[in-house]
Design a binder for these strands. Structure first.
Length: 446
RNA sequence: GGUCCGGUGGCAGAGUGGUGAUGCAGCGGAUUGCAAAUCCGUCAAUGUGGGUUCGAUUCCCGCCCGGACCUCCA
């Protein structure tokens, strides 16, 4: 079995991955807050950790991949209040959209997809324990985590509480004992969602949900925790603090993985900046696999650039690979080392793609073994999931196009090139390209 | 202001202390009625100034530039 190495944010080194239980790998990844359609940047962690999950399943007998849905959040409340739609409707609709979009990107569903609102009791349990342990306190209807009570606070993100104080840009609430303390539970007014608790009717703070859901579904200690590097602080730092203080002796996640951001013109794609494209919009212009490939073209921890030109490049690459598969048809075989080795080396997808290009070259020359390897590599990466014919010639109008192509063949036989070129131009205008090979002609969608 | 990350050919993007992957684009050619696809060939890069070293793109320091994060996240 190949050795898997992963860069652990916690230790800032590339380590050999050694699961707590080699018979059962457990991974938690922060999922979406369902208040609006996902943009392409939001899809990056989904795709990256989908690849990791697929790889882990090849390497280990059992994998439990948990990715939550955050369905209680002030952004959701604000969205519902603004539109008049109920909160339940906003979250249900947005979660369904998210599922459809991610499926279109070839991301398999996680094994468990817990919702924050289904874990309120677990959150309350954790908060109560933290209070008992002296790591949290109730004040002014809120419950706060006491940063000063946890000596290792800041360890994950590499910050000292002093640094944080110096950089504080938000006014410190008066009920905090320490400016770094963060909310575990907060009171809800009647117009806001709330649950009964020992501290009155309220709702959870931002970070507690992940501690509750990972605990419930993976246990106190598990193998991998993933998410975007914009969550490193404060979200992940606070998660670790809560969980470690609640479960003394546990390790929480042993390996932390953080994906880089998706940039557009050199800047992070984000809702607040408005420089984003929804997955849905981009899917209208390019196949999901092209978007997926774009997201995987850079190393997961680096920033990746997004543009329509780059998306078109990915489409071209995929077209060539599908052509190679068509040239040397074969069922998926073993994943070649030229692809497996890079993936096992901290998920080096760009280098894996280089391996796939070489396989495609060989397949193009008629090497069916290479073609089988290319197909297998595609399965591992969630690409090349279509039959070449479906990829190039899917759609309802195939029969009509075939007829036009036949008419052009007839025209060419008569050396009526004017008519032949006319038909070709007509098809080109519809986004269809032709290839004449010997006496035959094949067409494909561009 | 604090912390951290990064600067590689036209674009994107890997690896590496010792002649700088890969893809797209460009250029030349083969092929084609012309194209497309395919094949062959080809151009072209390590921000900047020092240091360590026999040798640095790779390690160290300064500088410049870009980006991310800085607590109940408008």
């Amino acid at each position: 079995m190949p050795v898997l190495r992963l860069h652990n944010s916690l230790t800032r080194t590339r380590e050999v991955f050694a699961p707590i239980d080699p018979g059962h790998v457990r991974m938690y990844v922060c999922g979406p807050t369902v208040y609006d359609l996902a943009h392409v940047g939001n899809a990056r962690p989904v795709v990256v950790f989908d690849v990791l999950a697929r790889l882990l399943r090849r390497l280990y007998p059992k994998v439990t991949y948990v990715r939550n849905i955050t369905d209680v959040d002030d952004k959701i409340n604000a969205r519902a209040a603004a539109s008049g739609e109920s909160i339940g409707s906003v979250t249900a609709r947005t979660a369904a959209d998210f599922h459809a979009d991610m499926a279109a990107l070839g991301a398999l569903p996680p094994d468990v997809e817990p919702r924050a609102t289904e874990h309120i009791t677990d959150m309350i349990t954790i908060i109560e324990r933290l209070i008992q342990n002296g790591h949290a306190y109730a004040a002014d209807g809120h419950v706060l985590f006491s940063v000063a009570s946890f000596a290792e606070y800041g360890h994950l993100s590499g910050r000292s509480p002093d640094d944080l104080l110096a950089g504080a840009r938000v006014e410190v609430a008066t009920y905090k004992e320490n400016p770094g303390d963060f909310v575990l539970w907060k009171p809800s007014t009647d117009d806001l969602p709330g649950w009964d608790s020992p501290w009155g009717r309220g709702r959870p703070g931002w970070h507690i949900e992940c501690s509750a859901m990972s605990w419930r579904h993976l246990g106190e200690s598990f193998d991998i925790h993933g998410g975007g590097n914009d969550l490193l602080f404060p979200h992940h730092e606070n998660e670790v603090a809560q969980s470690l203080c609640c479960f003394p002796g546990s390790t929480f996640a042993r390996v932390w993985l953080h994906n880089g951001m998706l940039n557009i013109n050199g800047t992070k794609m984000s809702k607040s900046l408005g420089n984003f494209f929804t997955v849905r919009d981009v899917l209208a212009k390019a196949p999901g696999e092209a978007i997926r490939m774009l997201l995987l073209r850079g190393h997961y921890a680096s920033t990746v650039e997004f543009s329509e030109d780059l998306l078109a490049d990915c489409k071209r690459d995929l077209d060539r690979w599908y052509r190679a598969l068509e040239r040397a048809p074969a069922a998926a075989g073993e994943v070649p080392a030229s692809v497996m080795a890079p993936l096992c080396d901290d998920l080096n997808t760009p280098l894996a793609f280089a391996g796939m290009h070489a396989l495609a070259d060989a397949a193009m020359a008629g090497n069916t073994e290479a073609s089988a390897g290319l197909r297998a590599a595609g399965d591992l990466l969630g690409l090349l999931q279509y039959d070449s014919t479906a990829w190039f010639r899917g759609g309802d109008d195939a029969a009509e196009i075939d007829a036009l192509v036949q008419a052009r063949i007839d025209a060419r036989k008569e050396r009526n090139f004017a008519r032949a070129d006319e038909i070709r131009a007509e098809l080109a205008a519809r986004g269809l390209a032709l290839e004449d090979k010997g006496g035959a002609t094949i067409w494909r969608r561009e």
